[in-house]
Write a protein that binds this DNA or RNA. Structure first.
Lengths: 220, 220
DNA sequence: GATCGTGTATTCGATTTAGGATATTCTGCC
DNA sequence: GGCAGAATATCCTAAATCGAATACACGATC
């Protein structure tokens, strides 16, 4: 085994941690937090134990010992197995090499944006611009901080990537806002018309009726 | 009620569909598919019925009738409620206005990239470049197709957004590859060193020991 | 007219997951 | 030395999720 369930990145984080040294789950979490990895991988204390258990079931990690200090709850220390080491490298390679389709919320919102009255949509988009600018400033600040502290760029790649993505989104939204303001967005007059009269749900349908095609997708 | 569980975008998709007209769950799915919305919202037949049920429990949709044609399985037709209409608009506004932190897999991979030997990482990154170029070409093709078919730009925003994001990622990865090739990536010599000798797990630790700071994050 | 595949419509069960509950110890402060 | 609150460490439960499975209808093929 060791196949399928490569879904949860937290499992990858656990593997990478145990690659370094044996730890108990809570220790893994502390380690990730202290290194700010929880900004790249969703860390949920509740999920952690389940994830470790599933890794154990798959033979990728093994319980080494369970110790108890004083009357604290028992801690089970896990270590990575050879299979686990192999899986870590394979998994990493796979994620890096093959982009997977993901579903950010904003993509969904854009798809259905016609359901909002255009002025409301515009107001919300302006708010998003502000929020993204703040995020971007923060990411830039963190990067500068890290650089000033002498952290080699190799170890700040996540931050650089986030920055690039936020900047690109900001750019997209700013252009969209501008095009809505100037009326350059083709279709906006139609959109405005749907939402002038008292809400007639049928009219929202137009959003859809047009949303047909986009090419077949025989790929994966 | 009506609060918290705004997690699943599929629920939003259902609401927007029912905003248009009453449908039974499978009809919702067909509608989404036929309009290519499943490229923006993860559509899972298994989840669909659970999601609808939860919307019903929250009073956002209501079963209108259950019909049975011939000896086919019963179909329950749902309609949106007033509460549901309000929630749809609020939810949409919220998603558009406030970016939420998400956790793409590639971000996780970048965080742990030090765990891969640098040459393997480089090879994987090159593969990613190729894959991203293909994705980008496909998205561009779809956009052209839609434009040629006379679809107003308003209804192709999702595609434009995806395109912008893929292009930005491609740019990032290409720069990274180049910097690794030329040695311009600060820290790469160190990285290479860790992985020369037989694997000493302790050395991987360096990836981490450096991965400290990145600024405190007191925000949310 | 038997069989094969495809489309329709829903349900099921096994995992996964989030998030809070629990139980203990440490730390600082008066 | 007693108390509040933070930190340590894990577990539990309800809900979400996914992939399969079901069950029927319809059309094409041999």
């Amino acid at each position: 085994m060791g196949r399928q369930p490569r879904s949860n990145p937290l499992a990858l984080a656990v593997l990478v941690c145990l690659y370094e040294r044996p730890m108990h789950p809570y220790d893994v979490a502390q380690t990730l937090r202290s290194r700010a990895k929880h900004e790249s991988v969703k860390l949920n204390y509740g999920s952690l134990y389940a994830v470790v258990e599933s890794l154990e079931k798959r033979g990728l990690v093994a319980a080494r010992e369970t110790v108890r200090e004083g009357r604290r709850p028992e801690r089970t220390v896990y270590e990575i197995t050879d299979l686990g080491r192999r899986e870590t490298l394979e998994w990493m390679t796979d994620i890096v090499a093959s982009p997977v389709k993901e579903y950010p919320q904003f993509l969904a919102a854009l798809t259905f944006i016609g359901a909002l009255p255009p002025d409301d949509a515009l107001a919300a988009l302006r708010q998003r611009v502000v929020a993204l600018e703040m995020n971007l400033a923060k990411l830039r600040g963190q990067r500068r901080l890290a650089a000033d502290a002498g952290l080699p760029r190799l170890f700040a790649l996540e931050g650089e990537y986030e920055e690039a993505m936020v900047a690109a989104e900001l750019d997209f939204v700013q252009r969209l806002v501008k095009d809505m303001e100037t009326g350059a967005l083709e279709g906006i007059d139609m959109w405005r018309m749907f939402h002038t009269e008292a809400f007639d749900p049928d009219e929202v349908a137009l959003n859809f009726t047009f949303g047909v095609l986009r090419g077949e997708e025989p790929e994966d």
